[in-house]
């Protein structure tokens, strides 16, 4: 009995296979079409954007620089002129307009370093951050407040008034120490020969090129 039923089905086997093939092809026609996005979905982007991880404070950055933390890249998204005038130590200049040049992408799209973007405030850096995140580049953060905040907190920290809590004094002394590291002279320290010009320290960063070869030909 089983054999006979099986034989009955098998006698239609080519028709069944043909039907399967037609259905598969028809599936391609009927499936809803959508526009493909490169990089991450808008939803993910939004959740990244509201995450507090997105910003790094100037104090944290100062700490990283002083500790000579090798794991981050500081990227200046301002134009070249401002970069030459003043920049944070070890920064690399990638102006916003050149953000997606092949050369810049090699720096931005890699997972060896954490990347910290900054501009004068954090407006342009945020724009760069959004673009990079949308393209699914990893480990990007923005320096909160940018260079302005850097000056206000690290280079020229505000002296706490006497009615402030002790924490504020701790922070002040930490910032003061940091600013001395970055070459600011304080009168009470009486160290005569320190120049206040910010020498831009350069760091050589070798970034491995991401391999992305074009597929090559047949015969």
């Amino acid at each position: 009995m089983i054999n006979r039923n099986l034989a009955k089905v098998l006698s239609f086997r080519y028709k069944i296979l043909a039907l399967v093939l037609v259905l598969l092809a028809a599936g391609l026609v009927l499936l809803p079409k959508y526009v493909k996005h490169e990089g991450i979905s808008p939803k993910e982007l939004l959740s990244n954007a509201i995450s507090p991880e997105r910003y790094i404070s100037t104090d944290e950055l100062a700490h990283k620089i002083i500790e000579q933390d090798p794991s981050f890249l500081l990227i200046d998204v301002r134009d070249e002129e401002s970069f030459k005038k003043f920049s944070l130590p070890y920064a690399i200049n990638i102006p916003l307009k050149k953000l997606l040049d092949e050369e810049s992408v090699n720096y931005l799209d890699q997972d060896e370093y954490d990347i910290i973007l900054y501009s004068n405030d954090h407006f342009y850096a945020d724009q760069a951050w959004i673009i990079c995140n949308r393209l699914a580049f990893k480990n990007h953060r923005v320096l909160e407040g940018g260079v302005n905040e850097w000056f206000a907190t690290i280079i020229n920290p505000e002296k706490p008034t006497e009615n402030m809590p002790r924490l504020a004094f701790d922070l002040y002394s930490y910032r003061k120490a940091a600013s001395m590291y970055f070459g600011v002279a304080y009168p009470e320290q009486a160290r005569p020969a320190v120049s206040t010009t910010n020498k831009t320290k350069k760091r050589r960063v070798t970034v491995r090129k991401k391999k992305k070869m074009a597929a090559e030909g047949g015969c």
């Binding site: 598969l24 092809a25 391609l28 499936l31 597929a215 030909g217």
Partner: peptide, 26 residues
Amino acid sequence: AVIAVIGIFYLDYLGYLDFNQLYIHP
């Protein structure tokens, strides 16, 4: 040819394979 083209387009549709990166015979 039929199986390959259907399979490739399903993979492309589902996002496993980027059709634009494949080598197209000139």
